[in-house]
Structures are given as structure tokens and as C-alpha cells.
Design a protein around this nucleic acid. Structure first.
Lengths: 225, 225
DNA sequence: TCATAAGGTATGGATTCCATAAAAAATTTT
DNA sequence: AAAATTTTTTATGGAATCCATACCTTATGA
């Protein structure tokens, strides 16, 4: 793997493992930060935007599972969970809670590397530009703003997540299920509401959306032009 | 999960596991074929195009690993490998050989289902081309639109289903029964009505259809050119 | 050419699906 | 902990679509 600037946070209460993983990944040109528990991790998460998080499930204080859930609520940083051997149930729980992958202890560092590569494959998409034009609106995902008709509206966190995902695949139909997974929600009406709100910020005539359209019976689509 | 027509091949030399997996997946609306070894599997692969293959690594004769390699050379059917517990090395080898995912035995059926869903997400539909030309009309099954004489008409879900099916076999006669099955309707007149509607969207002169024609006494045919 | 069978279509009630306002709950900020 | 913001639920109305029926038109062959 080439020199990278990917920044990974490793959270494990076991000093030995933490250091081992760190060493191995540093060798492979990652930038590594470690934390010894959820509390510590959260402190660091507030300051730094990591590319990947590696969390041990079994930790004193808040568990990795719970931490995953909490983090995934806010953003979609990929998470790899480390599970004690054979804890199938936890592994399932992990996926359900939104983890992107997991690894049973004991694991070979090489395997961890594979998982990381795997995830990087997925995220290496050519980072969305600072400002994206959707019809008459200009979306700034960094400032969390949408300019439309000389007005500036704020994008809320959940809205951002949906928008980001839909912007990755303009023209793709997102079922409510799809969207529900993005923001961790199941109620259909709730999703409708988020779409309605997005329309009010994106569309000149929210009642007749030109860009964020409904596909009756299937879901929603975003057209960026 | 909805009713699906996904066809999965399960290859494992252990009768017990084979049957267990089959049973569970059939319950979840998959079509399952089984094979007891690589030789058996290859015979079946020659005849049927599967959507996913589930292979045990440890098998008498050719191993799942070797089989994976062989298959991946020819096509890219997604493969999930089943590994005996703790065989980390094999798991790594599996990914390197081109497998799409793996699952350590013993596994929970529910977890297998998760993996399968995951893969299906990716392969989605074999997607007909974005835009299909039928006579003077341009059909966009994604946008659910038909452009004809500079006008855009919307296709609704039932119409789409019929169109999709007929597009799979242009020139084939579809009896009302055939069509009825597609959209779950039995009344003859009702089917006529759907055809009428489609003609109004597809044909320049709906009264004299050139492409969506009636075969009196037999049914309807779609000609795409 | 007339009778009849087969196909075409306008209409509308029932149903399903979606939009949105408003309220309630949860979360974040102050 | 009060206030402000955001998220989620709920309730309701409206729109799209489904499906059947009645009636009309066309094709066929006796």
C-alpha cells in the first residue's frame, strides 16, 4: 500500500493489543491514534475526524457496541469491531448497530489490514466538492448550508447524511429502507418528513420537486441537474 | 425480505449443514440448489447461472478455495466461503482468491442471511439499459418515463412490470394469462386496459399500434424495432 | 352481410401511497 | 436547567393507482 494519510483511531483497553495494532498499522503507513476506552475515544473524536475507527467490543465503561451506536448516529465513519472469540451474537449485534465489519480475536494483523483496505476501497470516492449545485440550489456540505434564491438555509445532521448518500449516486433510487439505514430509522413517515424538509431547502417549488423526486412505490431519487 | 427469485448454490460435503442452510434459505424465499463437492458443483454451474455461491472451504476433492479461484476466472458470481472455526489463514486466503465474503463455522443462519443481503445490495438488478428505444418512443425504466414526440409520459408501477417482462423477450407472445400473472390480475378486460394505456404512451398512433400488437386469440406482442 | 366473439376504452369507486402541519420527544446549546 | 434546535411521531387530507364494469368497436367466418 502506498503512503497514505488515512487516520485511524484504535480503541482497546488492552495495552498490549493497542500497541501491537498501532505498530503494525504505522508500519503500513497509516496515521494511528489510540484510546483506552470509550470516554477517551470520544474526547479524541471531538477533535479529529478519523477515516476509520477500530473498536474493541469488550471494554470497561461503555462497550464498543454502544459506542458504535452513538457514533453512527452522528456520522458515518467506518467502524471495525473487535470481538472476543466466538461471540457470534455480538458480531451480529455489531452489524445491526451499524458497524461496517468485525474481526474475531485473536486475529492476524494481516487480516485487519485486509479489512481496512476493503473499507478504504469503498470510501475512496473522489470526495464531494466543496460546493455542489443541485438545480437552482447551491449546497455546501462543509458549512452545512444551502443557498437558494438568495436565502441561506442550514442543513441539519440527519439531512446531511441523506444528502451525502444521495449525492454519491445521483439518479439512483433510494428506497425508504435504504434511507432508513442511513439515518437509523424505520418509520416511513419520518423519512417522508425528512424528504419534505430537504425539499424545502433545495427546491424552488417544494410542492413540485424537480430534483428530489418521489418514485411512487419505490422511493426517492435525487437528480443534480 | 420480499419474495425473490435469487438462486443460490450451496456446496458443502456435510449433509447436515447443507440441509440446514437450504431449509433456512428456502424459508427466506430463495431458490436453493445444493452440491456435495466441487465436482458436483461444477456440473451444476454449467447448467445454471446462480446469483450467489456458498462454498465450504474444507471439502474432499477440490477445496472451496481452489474452486473459488477457478470460478472467479470465468465469471464474477459472488461467492461466500464457509471456513472451519479459527482458520484465520484460510480466511485471508479466501479473500485474496477473490471470495466476496466468508463466514466462520459455526455460524448463525441469521448472519448468513445478512451476508447474502449485503451482496444482493451490491449486485442489485441486472439493469436493462438506461434507455430503450421502442419504435419512436424512448423508454427510461429508471426514471419511469417514456418520451414520444417530445412529450414525456410517466409509467406507473404495473405498466413498468409488464413492459419489463415484455422487453425481456421481444417478439414473444404474451397471453393474458401470462400478463395476468405478472401483475396479479385475472380479469381479461383489466389487462386490456393496461395494454391500452401502454399504447397511449408508446405508440404514435395508439389506435394502430405498430409495436405493442394484439395477436387475436392469443395475446399481445412487443416489437422493439 | 350479419351474428358473434374478441378486443378497446371511458369511467369511477376503492385502495394504497405520499405530503405535510402540528405536536411531542429528544437532543443540543446557552 | 432553561431555551433553542432538531428529530420523531401522529393525524389528516390528498393524489396516484388499481381494478372492475359497462359499453363500444372491430374482426371473423358462416
Amino acid at each position: 500500500m502506498n503512503k497514505s494519510t488515512f487516520h485511524i483511531l484504535v480503541v482497546d483497553d488492552d495495552d498490549r493489543i493497542r500497541e501491537l495494532v498501532k505498530e503494525y498499522l504505522v508500519e503500513n503507513n497509516f496515521i494511528i491514534t489510540t484510546a483506552k476506552d470509550a470516554f477517551d475515544a470520544k474526547k479524541k473524536l471531538e477533535i479529529i475526524k478519523f477515516d476509520i475507527l477500530i473498536l474493541d467490543i469488550m471494554m470497561p465503561g461503555q462497550s464498543g457496541l454502544s459506542l458504535t451506536k452513538e457514533i453512527k448516529k452522528k456520522d458515518n465513519t467506518p467502524i471495525i469491531l473487535l470481538t472476543a472469540k466466538g461471540e457470534t451474537k455480538e458480531r451480529i449485534a455489531g452489524l445491526e448497530v451499524g458497524a461496517d465489519d468485525y474481526l474475531g480475536k485473536p486475529f492476524e494483523p494481516k487480516e485487519l489490514l485486509l479489512r481496512i483496505k476493503n473499507i478504504l476501497e469503498k470510501i475512496k470516492k473522489p470526495a464531494l466538492p466543496e460546493e455542489i449545485v443541485i438545480g437552482e440550489a447551491k449546497v455546501n456540505l462543509k458549512k452545512l448550508e444551502i443557498r437558494l434564491n438568495n436565502k441561506v438555509k442550514k442543513i441539519n445532521p440527519q439531512e446531511r447524511k441523506i444528502l451525502e448518500k444521495m449525492l454519491e449516486s445521483p439518479g439512483k433510487i433510494f428506497s425508504r429502507d435504504n434511507i432508513g439505514k442511513i439515518i437509523n430509522i424505520s418509520k416511513e413517515r419520518t423519512i417522508d418528513v425528512m424528504i419534505t424538509r430537504l425539499r424545502q431547502k433545495l427546491e424552488s417549488i417544494p410542492k413540485n420537486p424537480k430534483y428530489l423526486q418521489t418514485i411512487r412505490g419505490s422511493g426517492y431519487v435525487l437528480w443534480i441537474k
